[in-house]
């Protein structure tokens, strides 16, 4: 209730993120940004945590929203808000990884040879799996595969993922396929123990 009183939900709740962003650009009224932060911050943080660690994810989240304000003039009618936001966050994360030499970009040729051995893993087995084991398996994937897979599992379309990671849709499709195969392999090995 307090939240509803604090934020002008009657003005912002029924507006899409895209429209809220356009209205913010037009009016420079912070209330539209606040609505966007409320709507997307948690999911964005979860996405970033799975790519890095809580400390870095928090830092990147903060930078992302400030960068969004800084680059608002680049946002136009043709964009969708959520992929645009994630693209900013993803770029900041990659920059940070590059600065700290944590990022090794995958070689696509190397990827092409990978995962040819498809391992069978039952859905029931996956359902019974501990989340921590799943998280550990996820963390063993290559960065580019993991980010594409998580984005897809969070509901982004191939087209949107391709915009976020700035790669052609075919590349994204391959990365997701290899990510799933690698994940199956890791989980199957784990289940055998």
């Amino acid at each position: 209730m307090l939240k509803l009183l604090k934020f002008p939900f009657w003005q912002t709740a029924d507006v899409s993120s895209h429209d809220a962003m356009l209205r913010y650009i037009q009016s420079e009224d912070a209330k539209w940004l606040e609505a966007l932060v409320h709507q997307h911050q948690t999911a964005l943080y979860r996405f970033l945590v799975q790519q890095s660690d809580p400390q870095l994810a928090a830092d990147i989240c903060q930078q992302t929203w400030l960068k969004l304000i800084e680059k608002k003039h680049l946002y136009t009618e043709q964009y969708q808000f959520k992929p645009w936001l994630y693209r900013i966050a993803r770029n900041l994360l990659v920059d940070e990884f590059r600065r700290s030499n944590k990022l090794v970009f995958d070689n696509e040729i190397e990827l092409a040879g990978e995962g040819e051995r498809d391992v069978a893993i039952l859905a029931e087995q996956l359902d019974c799996l501990d989340v921590d084991i799943y998280q550990q398996a996820l963390s063993q994937l290559k960065f580019s595969q993991r980010e594409s897979l998580i984005l897809q599992l969070q509901g982004f379309s191939l087209h949107q993922i391709s915009e976020i990671v700035a790669q052609p849709q075919e590349t994204v499709k391959s990365r997701i396929r290899y990510a799933k195969q690698a994940l199956k392999q890791i989980l199957a090995n784990r289940l055998k123990r």
Partner: peptide, 24 residues
């Protein structure tokens, strides 16, 4: 089925990452 199970697992994993209200 694996795809659906993966989505369920991801949703479970997401829900375990607590929303950081202080950060917000």
């Amino acid at each position: 089925e694996f795809e659906y199970a993966l989505r369920r697992m991801q949703a479970k994993a997401d829900s375990q990452i607590e929303a950081d209200r202080h950060l917000e």
